[in-house]
């Protein structure tokens, strides 16, 4: 099941999680050069218990707490939480 959380508005980030054959993290960010690695580390840390998923991050300059909030929302939806 493909789920998403967040938006592509300024200061936000869109997180998409979907099943995949192996774990894959894709990051698209306008600040990739400066923060790409930091974003990847946060995503890796938060998804350490998830296998066989593709996590796609479209960052629009989100702060760390925003990325974490959107990641948590997407992961909880992926686990089946609703509303």
């Amino acid at each position: 099941m493909r789920v998403q959380a967040g938006t592509e508005e300024k200061g936000d980030v869109l997180v998409v999680i979907e099943p995949a054959k192996k774990k894959e993290i894709v990051i698209k960010s306008k600040v990739q050069v400066m923060y790409g690695e930091a974003i990847k580390n946060t995503v890796k840390e938060m998804t350490k218990n998830l296998k066989k998923v593709k996590v796609e991050i479209s960052d629009k300059g989100a702060l760390e707490w925003v990325l974490r909030a959107r990641m948590e929302a997407a992961m909880r939806k992926y686990r089946g939480e609703k509303e």
Binding site: A5, G6, L63, E64, W65, V66, R68, A69, R70, E72, A73, R76, K77, E81, K82, E83
Partner: peptide
């Protein structure tokens, strides 16, 4: 957006 917003607000209250 209700689901995402309540989680965002939870983080905002702790980090902003």
């Amino acid at each position: 957006q209700k689901f995402d917003a309540r989680i965002l607000v939870k983080y905002a209250l702790q980090h902003v």
